[in-house]
Design a protein around this nucleic acid. Structure first.
Lengths: 200, 200
DNA sequence: GCACTTAACATAGCATCGCTATGCTATGTT
DNA sequence: AACATAGCATAGCGATGCTATGTTAAGTGC
């Protein structure tokens, strides 16, 4: 038919835009393509416009988050795993603060919403394992507790990456998760040890 | 000396910009001053530019939050008051979602940072009262628990106003705060009643 | 009460923004 | 070999935030 798109260019533009975001440089149509050899039209060919580029960067953020959550293995202590997932979540936000910030900026929708849900499912499964292991009460609704864990993790990540709280505030994750999991039925002392073992 | 600024114009522009923000209309230099009779220069006279206008709107958000928190009185049950402060916080975010979103957008600093801290002090004082009343353990650090309450409240407010969670998710505030305050030493059943009494 | 000073004001214009229309080029198909 | 078509580069459009410039009007000193 005709010429085919070069995936390398798409990757190059996302990479460059993400780098400029990290360097706090203004991300404009012309500044992104500058010194890349490609013209401004490439942004429209590959992303349909600047909105599409931002969408792709958000997707990139969720992809990295999913990759990091995937590195958290399953041990014999599901509560530790749950805390480790929370630590991985805020750790990812701390490692890529600019990427994390745009992930939750409203106005754009994701290319692949399922990828975002997938991340929450990691938490849900860990809660279910903890409940099955007798650490949580039988009446604990897995999605509810997982969502509450997410809320705490996001509040922490958002306030630290946003500036109001210093990086040391990441430590609040331990008492927050301990309170949450203890409230779900885990014994206080055992919960504290598990959370501390999983956190960072 | 010369002509003096008219505070009414400043208020008019903030009001109009906030209204346009609520209506999801693009807030531009020219669109803000349109149909107001004033010229584009007014934005520079009163705010020094568009950044200043956004700063003023953020300040307006913190002012409204402070006003709402101030309506929460002190009762004989400090844990109820603490929950009521949390409810007022997320309630304010739900009432003014667009204003809340820009409050925590990085890049700008507040005109009056002390006003933001003042809000957190409401929580700190409530924690101190609860500790003094014997509801919390003596070793509870008031600023730590207040910050954790803020983290939970902000996570909830942020995820709901941002879109990922529906408005019904505001209900997660009850188990979140109950877990937090129970972990601080309050008895489970009594804590649950206090939080439910103070929430919304 | 008049003249002077000075800050607020309106207008016009600048560089740059995202985006689109228009040919040209190169690649895959027949 | 000839065609069809998608990617590409260029130029230009309306709109953006901002600034330079001249004018106007309010406050001050005599």
């Amino acid at each position: 038919m005709a010429r085919t798109k070069d995936p390398a260019i798409r990757e190059l533009l996302i990479e460059r835009a993400a780098h400029m975001l990290r360097a706090r440089e203004p991300i404009t149509l012309r500044s992104v393509v500058a010194e890349t050899g490609v013209s401004t039209m490439a942004v429209y060919t590959y992303f349909g416009g600047m909105d599409g580029l931002w969408r792709a960067m958000r997707q990139e953020g969720f992809t990295r988050l999913a990759a990091r959550l995937a590195t958290v293995g399953e041990t014999a202590d599901p509560v530790r795993d749950l805390a480790a997932l929370g630590a991985a979540y805020v750790g990812n936000a701390g490692a890529h603060p600019d990427l994390y910030r745009i992930m939750f900026d409203a106005g754009f929708d994701l290319e692949d919403p399922a990828a975002a849900d997938e991340s929450l499912h990691h938490l849900v499964r860990a809660v279910e394992r903890a409940r099955a292991a007798g650490r949580f009460r039988a009446d604990v609704v897995a999605t509810d507790l997982a969502t509450q864990t997410w809320i705490a993790g996001h509040g922490l990540a958002s306030l630290v990456t946003g500036g109001p709280l210093p990086a040391e505030a990441f430590g609040y994750g331990i008492p927050l998760l301990t309170a949450l999991f203890t409230s779900a039925g885990d014994s206080a002392e055992r919960c504290r040890r598990s959370v501390e073992a999983g956190w960072f």
